[in-house]
Simulated assay, not measured.
Amino acid sequence: MKRQPLRLAILEAIRILEAAGVESPRTDAELIAAHVLGVERGRLPLVPLVDPPVIDAIGKLVTERAKRVPLQYLTGWAALGPITVEVGPGVFIPRPETELLLEWGLALLRGRTNPIVVDLCTGSGALALAVAHAMPDAVVYAVDSDPHALAWARHNADVRAEAGDTPIRLYSGDVGDDTIFAELDGLVDLVLCNPPYVPPGGELPPEVLDYDPPQAVFAADGGLAVIRQAVATAARLLKPGGGLAIEHDDTHGSVVPALVTARKVLTAVEDHPDLTGRPRFVTARRL
């Protein structure tokens, strides 16, 4: 069988994905090729020729991606900061935008020894596990109410622990439960939260609407129901000088900071843009 240029296969993949309306056709085409070849994306130029079965395998994944199946479902993983986690049906796929929230939290923890961190609405466990990876002496708690998400989080936690990261403490619970983590009241250095926050009926791409679990995407009260609960829980858990970072919809750029400000024990409230410049997460400190 005659070997074929990988570059031509990637160009064809880009063409197909562009026609399908995929947002980042070149990136996705190259990541699919890298996944099939088992190499990092940056090393693709070092693989000029490939065997026909490789071309076929790339083509099959590109066909699925053109149907708007999430890229992460096809590769089986998603990245958040310095780590990757496994994802698939039943769990929310971490987004690059959340890395900025993670960076803010890690900056807050710098210089603290044995900090206590709580990740509300943990989903795949990505945020909690990224903190545990970056801060080996941190004691990291994570909670979610969805059993399917928790199964993914437990799997990812086991994988990260086997890789040598500090294990996280994973719980089943509702962020609206005012007794959750009651033993940590006033002791927590950092609360992170990427809750469901899209207003019901909001327009979303097929990758989100057809694949992400609805309960991890949409929230009542114009997308604010879980955010309200998370802010209340964070205000209870945080120690003086502790920090809160919570993600929100890009239509919430003024309302969520106002919700946080209404908690008199929270100060230094600031809203932050995502990678595209849209309002995306709010931060605060506990008095």
Rank of each mutant, 00 (worst) to 15 (best):
R3F: 04
P5N: 02
P5Y: 00
L8W: 02
L8I: 03
L8V: 04
A13P: 11
I16G: 04
L17A: 11
G21C: 08
E23A: 15
E23C: 02
E23P: 01
S24K: 10
A29E: 14
A34G: 13
R41W: 03
L44P: 08
P45A: 11
P48D: 04
V50I: 15
P53H: 08
A57M: 09
G59I: 15
T63Q: 13
E64Q: 15
E64A: 14
K67S: 12
Y73M: 07
T75K: 10
G76C: 12
A79I: 04
L80H: 01
V87N: 11
G88E: 06
P89Q: 12
I93W: 06
P94F: 11
E99N: 06
L101D: 10
E103C: 09
A107T: 14
G111W: 09
G111L: 06
R112N: 04
R112G: 04
P115A: 13
P115Q: 13
P115S: 13
I116W: 03
C121R: 00
C121T: 00
S124M: 05
A130R: 00
A132H: 08
A134S: 15
V139Q: 11
V140C: 08
V143S: 02
D144H: 00
D146H: 07
P147F: 07
A151C: 05
A153R: 06
H155R: 14
N156D: 09
N156T: 04
D158K: 09
V159I: 14
R160A: 15
A161E: 10
E162Q: 12
E162F: 03
A163G: 05
T166W: 02
I168C: 04
R169A: 12
V175A: 14
D178C: 12
T179R: 07
I180L: 15
I180C: 06
L184P: 08
D189K: 08
L192P: 10
V198E: 00
E207W: 04
E207Q: 12
L209F: 10
L209T: 12
A216N: 07
V217S: 13
F218Q: 12
A219Y: 02
A219K: 06
A220P: 02
G222I: 00
L224T: 01
A225I: 00
A232C: 10
A234I: 07
R236P: 00
A245V: 13
H248W: 02
V256Y: 02
A258Y: 01
R263F: 07
K264S: 13
V265C: 13
V265Q: 14
E270K: 11
D271N: 09
H272T: 06
L275C: 06
V282S: 03
V282D: 00
V282A: 08
R286A: 07
